[in-house]
Simulated scan of single mutants.
Amino acid sequence: MKRRTLLGSAAALVAAMAAPAFGQDEKLKIGFIYVGPVGDGGWTYQHDLARQAVEKEFGDKVETTFIESVPEGADAERALTQLALAGNKMIFATSFGFMDATLNVAKKFPDIKFEHATGYKRAENVATYDARFYEGRAVIGTIAGRMTKSNKIGYIGSFPIPEVVQGINSAYIHAKKVNPNVEMKVVWVYSWFDPAKEADAAAALIAEGVDVFMQHTDSTAPLAKAQEAGALGFGQASDMTSFAPSPRISSIVDNWSPYYIKRVGQVLDGTWKSEATWAGIGDGEVVIGDITEAVPAEVKAEAETLRDKIAKGEYHPFTGPLKKQDGSDWLAEGATATDEELSGMNFYVEGITAPMPQ
Rank of each mutant, 00 (worst) to 15 (best):
T5F: 02
L13I: 15
A16H: 01
E26T: 15
P37Y: 07
G42L: 04
T44A: 13
K56M: 11
F58S: 12
E63Q: 13
E77P: 10
A79N: 01
A79E: 00
G87K: 12
A93E: 09
A93N: 10
D100S: 15
T102Q: 07
G119Y: 06
Y120K: 12
T128R: 08
Y129F: 14
D130R: 09
F133D: 14
R137M: 13
T142A: 06
I143P: 08
T148D: 01
T148P: 03
S158L: 04
F159E: 06
S170M: 04
H174G: 03
N179H: 03
N181Y: 04
V182E: 02
F193V: 07
D194W: 08
A196P: 05
G209M: 03
H216W: 12
L223Q: 05
A229G: 03
G233R: 09
A244V: 09
P247H: 03
V253M: 09
Y259W: 14
Y260C: 04
K262N: 11
R263A: 15
G265R: 07
W272R: 05
E275T: 15
W278C: 01
G284H: 00
I288F: 05
E293N: 12
A294T: 13
A297V: 09
V299Y: 01
A311V: 02
D326Y: 09
L331Y: 14
T338Q: 02
S343C: 02
M345I: 15
E350I: 06
G351H: 12
